[in-house]
Amino acid sequence: MAITSLQKICAEIRERWSSIVNIAIYHRLGAVPVKEASIVIAISSPHRNEALNATQWCIENVKEKVPIWKKEFYENDSSPEWKENKEYEPIPKPPQPSESQEVVIPYTPVHLIQIKASREEIEGRIERFMKRKRDEINRCNIKDFCMRDIDVECEESCARIDSVLIKRKDSKGHLQVNRVYNAYCYRDQNDTEYLEKYIPPNGIEERVKTLEHQLSLTTPVPRNIYERLKDLEDRLLHLESISPEYMQFWDRDNPGFNKTFKKKKTFHLEEIDRLIIDLENKRSKQFN
């Protein structure tokens, strides 16, 4: 039974701490002289935290559940004693029958009692007070958020579903656009446990795929991850450049932006002739 208990404890350790690699529990049997250890527990894991916690949990449970007993013998003592662990308690305790508690009320003079109402009446009063408060809050919400008269009774309405969006002061539009400067980079990825738990093994691939789907990049994507990222960035920049919400970020110095169309100059035949003659004169002067 001791071995089955130990195996159960091992199984539970692996269930509680999934990163545990090896577990070794060694318990001495027979006479153990004073000063010598009776138990060795060794647990290994990639990080020390899990192993240390598991070891502590392990020894507590071994002492509590594994049926191994020790008897202390003293010199010149004819009656050796069985030891009991403080962890021991006859596990599953029988449920105590719930007794209705009788409250003993000391004698109090009648003139000192302030509230003489019965229990039902006090509970009723508390109930009515809570209802009144709830109605009050509801009325305030209707006044604040719903554009309708409070006195008009409406069965199928409440402040939560009936509210109207009121434009607040200094709000430019319904879409909030922010630019975030992330100075730390990957700031929520320090916790490795979080990474293992929530990001699947092929997390990057999945994220890139989702992004491509979201941005409707349906054409076959290049193999190279950097090319794929470049495509995503280009697509995002394009979308931003055509969305009015991002107007405040448009680069007005960019020559590509606001291209003013220049009309080409047209010449008459005589003018062209004159230009040619001028040019010829210039050239002939140069050569002479």
């Binding site: 001791a2 138990i39 020894i59 662990n85 599953p92």
Partner: peptide, 30 residues
């Protein structure tokens, strides 16, 4: 403990011939 399994103190125990019932006094290993 019935057949090397601590039994639940509030429940009915089902036994058959040959079952082992162990009396486990306070444990003191470790």
């Amino acid at each position: 403990a019935v057949n090397e399994e601590y039994s639940n103190t509030s429940e009915r125990i089902l036994l058959k011939t040959g079952d082992e019932i162990a009396i486990i006094p306070p444990i003191s290993g470790g």
